[in-house]
Nucleic acid binder design. Structure first.
Lengths: 165, 165
DNA sequence: CTAGGGGTTAGAGCGCACTCTAAGTCAAGC
DNA sequence: GCTTGACTTAGAGTGCGCTCTAACCCCTAG
């Protein structure tokens, strides 16, 4: 299997697969007569697992540590177990955090929905509709320019605080 | 409240708070006589909500879109509702994905635990313990150098000169 | 024979979200 | 008066994880 095929089957781009090999996340692939990578099907199992670690937010450096332990054979079983167990705990914590935030989000959405409902009901009576929780802030907010992106162009110009104004 | 205090109370660094103001995620703060930001307590409510959006993985550009809609008043209620609802769906999908991966992770961890158990049981009989699911790969893996980091230094070498054909 | 569509490498560039630096101001404490 | 430390600005730098480019090679189809 060539890198393009593996890319299609694994969901990672060929660029990314080469990158992973370079940093040691994937084994150095055998090359065919003309120097092209020739993959064995079995690599897909490992790649799929890497994908799961990635999906669950494990940083590459940790995947690398785990990958390297696999070279150590059975002697590293405990360590590998511990890495995955620690990661699982992290994932569980993340899920819990997301679920907690989801409740707040749902509340806020319900607030908006209620406002919309009220606006519709009162369509011809124009009763002020500012009871929504979503409107906590003073409406003096957001008068700054907003460059939309930090923009790392340009240089020079004087520094020091222009106070007062 | 000065920026240092707000930093302590919000959990964001002063650097980050200034950055958020710069990009428009936080309102342009009032300055005191000597040009220093002087915050009102209420800003904490908005910052806390921003934190939740961030925690749930909303990119800054989307938070910005949401923040800007708040300036539009009640007219933007529907749009704000839709943004949050879409985000909520995303978060729910993320949770589902994490939970699915968690199962796989748990399986793998259980595999390691079983191997460790067996290794302990067979302590004095040294039976090879390679039945663990965790050992799918051929042990010829991982013989590449591993630079540990791509390293984006360097500025030498010709660039941009696509030899005019 | 030529075109094209794959592959190869080293290394540069990108997008994101900060994070920090330089050079300066200012208020309070010793 | 002087020092300390928190603040101000514009802009540069960082770390992550890719993503792409240049310049090349090789195989196959027409």
């Amino acid at each position: 299997m060539k890198i393009g095929d593996l890319a299609k089957r694994s969901g990672f781009s060929a660029h990314t697969l080469r990158y992973y090999e370079r940093i040691g996340l994937l084994p150095y692939a055998d090359r065919d007569a003309s120097g092209q990578r020739d993959y064995d099907e079995t690599i897909l199992i490992w790649i799929e697992f890497l994908g799961r670690l990635k999906d669950t937010g494990m940083p590459i450096r940790d995947m690398l540590a785990y990958a390297n332990l696999r070279n150590g054979g059975p002697a590293t079983t405990q360590e590998r177990h511990d890495i995955l167990a620690a990661h699982r705990d992290q994932v569980q914590a993340t899920i819990a955090r997301l679920q907690a935030n989801l409740l707040v989000l749902d509340d806020k959405i319900a607030g908006y929905a209620a406002t919309l409902q009220r606006t519709q009901d009162d369509d011809s009576q124009h009763i002020p509709t500012s009871t929504n929780q979503a409107e906590h802030q003073p409406n003096t907010l957001y008068r700054n320019p907003i460059p939309a992106r930090p923009a790392r162009t340009g240089r020079h110009r004087r520094r020091g605080g222009p106070k007062g104004d």
